[in-house]
Nucleic acid binder design. Structure first.
Lengths: 304, 304
DNA sequence: GTCAACGTTTTGTCCTGGACAATATCGCCA
DNA sequence: TGGCGATATTGTCCAGGACAAAACGTTGAC
């Protein structure tokens, strides 16, 4: 490896998501980061500094304040990232925004809805937004549709706009980590993609490397992709509408064909409470449980 | 509607792709843009300024220099954008990027692919990206899939990532204009959503107000939405896989049921060359034709 | 006339250091 | 315990200076 000189401030902005202004003001106030300068006084950030900045950014998104983090070492920060994840499960009463969104859906106020979704996402961060807003909302919308309170149009509109919001946020994450590499998709016949998208939204901020294939990938192609791509986890989503029998059959046969080292996760209403029928498969009970599954995978990997 | 005060510099950066630094230095050097200031001296850009900036950015991407453009009116810039698109921007050497993207798809390099898509989009602007990159690429991928050169996995991966990229860009447009209000969807049975997304991506930068319902909206619900929502145009997308007979039948019956004042557009491979069978429906031949259809609607509206 | 080399202009990005709005945190009192 | 000002923290904005990289224009040799 040739000694690399360092990253420019623009590169660090892209890689960490911290604005140039923020990087400069931190240096002024806290003395970190303290990048070298090139011949002409421009900042050159080291790889170590960028790593630490990435950790800090992630903790920031979880509600920590910069001053509490900036003096810690990268190791301490990493530990903090892994262990005490109550922050996400914490604050749990956001019914006001939830109701507002639901109202806008019923009124077809698509512009306002788009704005409110984005705004709510910004305010709570991606994971909180998914866990506390999007997931409950999906359920409400589904119920309302069953009761005939809302029509197909409203449900479609909501799905589209939520998809835009989530995909924007996912796409904006500068670096999708390394391990585990998670392959996300659904079996043929499953029409719903929101579950997949929500799972991806939970995983990406944790530094998991997500590869989504969207819905309806044939079993043989899932296997092919999992084998050729050095995939650590195959994650499938099943909506309430998916026949349980198909889900269990598909998962069992997939489990038999996948390499033993590859984990298999199954989530969504369609498999809720089916852990007993699915040995060697991790059934994810509710969107929060995604993070638990991830933590389990990581600790298991440390022991080996 | 309440009079909106203006956009902050951060909003304009997101909206136009011009950095804050660039915006400030242009103001200093050229005297444009010259935004108002709020109580506390912060810039507030008007909608007109942002429109002009968008034009300039697009021309910049085509090889013009700022100093030659900055004194022209928005009308002159628009004319420049429309007429000599192929003459000046004869720089149609996009096959290199196209080939790179195709290679990355084949190699499953999802992270690199994501980066390249975003980067290419930034470089060419949303509309150019769709017309010159995304649309041809779709065709290539489709052909390669038919010939067995690529598998389901690759095609799914490509679709997902392109969707992320386009939805991010669409979602980033802060103000979706006012007229025409366009309702985008597909008839039941259509599985492909990329055509819809590309159409939306072409329309949104033109100031059309797009409401997408995603795929597979029943005819009755399309009618309901069109009537209740004061929709000017209903736009449907048909992939090559969609049975022509169904398309023609669906469109004909929809045309009969929609108010006369509501325009009906149909696009995609599935209806290409079918204008003769579809009176009072505007068949959109190719993605570029979307803009022509929009222009027609607007001039027709002026005459009335 | 073509093309390479070199000086000039244009243009985007980076710099410093100051300021302030928005938000979080703390201390107080009911 | 819970509301509510005071205070501290933090991100973003501003001005104006500077310079590297790229585009442009000119010259001269072949």
């Amino acid at each position: 490896m040739t000694e690399f000189p360092g990253l420019s401030i623009a590169a660090v902005e892209r890689d960490t998501g911290l604005s140039k202004d923020t990087l400069r003001v931190w240096e002024r106030r806290y003395g970190f980061p303290k990048p070298l300068r090139d011949i002409f006084g421009e900042r050159l950030y080291s790889a170590a500094e960028v790593d630490k900045l990435r950790c800090i950014k992630r903790l920031l998104d979880q509600g920590f304040r910069p001053s509490k983090l900036i003096d810690s070492s990268t190791e301490e920060l990493t530990k903090l990232l892994e262990s005490p994840r109550d922050a996400v499960a914490g604050i749990r009463e956001l019914p006001s925004e939830l109701a507002s969104i639901l109202d806008l859906v019923k009124l077809h106020r698509s512009d306002a809805l788009r704005g409110l979704l984005t705004q709510t996402l910004m305010k709570h961060g991606l994971q909180q937004f998914v866990a506390a807003i999007a997931a409950p909302l999906n359920q409400r919308i589904g119920e309302a549709w069953m009761r005939g309170e809302i029509g197909v149009t409203e449900e479609h509109l909501y799905t589209e706009l939520l998809q835009n919001t989530l995909r924007s946020a996912i796409n904006a994450y500068p670096i999708h980590g390394l391990r585990p590499k998670v392959l996300l998709t659904t079996l043929p016949g499953e029409e719903h993609s929101l579950g997949l998208l929500m799972a991806e939204a939970m995983l990406v901020p944790e530094g998991a490397r997500c590869v989504s294939l969207g819905i309806q990938t044939p079993l043989s192609d899932i296997l092919l992709a999992a084998r050729s791509g050095e995939v650590d986890v195959v994650a499938l989503s099943f909506s309430a509408a998916y026949p349980v029998r198909h889900a269990v059959e598909g998962l069992t046969s997939l489990r038999g064909l996948l390499p033993e080292a590859t984990a298999l996760w199954a989530g969504g209403e369609g498999v809720r409470g089916r852990q007993r029928s699915l040995p060697n498969t991790r059934v994810i009970e509710g969107i929060d449980d995604t993070l638990a599954a991830l933590r389990e995978w990581r600790t298991a990997r440390l022991d080996n």
